[in-house]
Design a protein around this nucleic acid. Structure first.
Lengths: 66, 66
DNA sequence: ACAAAATGTAAAAAATACTTGACATTAAGT
DNA sequence: ACTTAATGTCAAGTATTTTTTACATTTTGT
């Protein structure tokens, strides 16, 4: 699974830490997600999508391998 | 987090097992999700939304407790 | 009423998400 | 060049998701 968090974060001009605070996770969690180290839970995906005012599908993209 | 899987499944007339096969998880995973026993991964949420042709947000709903 | 299909549930194990803390590297501003 | 903010990364630990197996209950069709 791919994600556009870094891009969306740039658009909104947010640091990893600021985003982390907004969605109540650690900064490392955001960092690891951007580095595609793991797939977040749906709760977290919904919260992030909400911060960016976009549907989940616009930020998190399924790949063939999923 | 709430979800409308049972309703969407009824609309599409799918059994838990059929849905489970479509998204490559066990029947118990679908059952437990419907029973709100746990929150699925984003990959699973995306796949389920795709089966139902709806955005993730239409099927999985954040609650205050999230 | 009976049989078969669908659903509920539970426990143990495996896999993965997420935290905390700590330190190293890079980028930005003065 | 210096300082600070931002990001990268790692390791160990906790929490949660998901699988498997197995059996009980409910629903559906005949």
């Amino acid at each position: 699974m791919k994600n556009n968090i870094r891009v969306e974060r740039a658009i909104k001009n947010l640091t990893q830490e600021e985003l982390a605070n907004k969605v109540s996770v650690s900064r490392q969690t955001i960092n690891a997600m951007e580095a595609n180290k793991y797939v977040p839970s749906t709760v977290l995906a919904l919260k992030i999508a909400k911060v960016f005012n976009k549907p989940v599908e616009a930020i998190f993209l399924l790949e063939k391998s999923d």
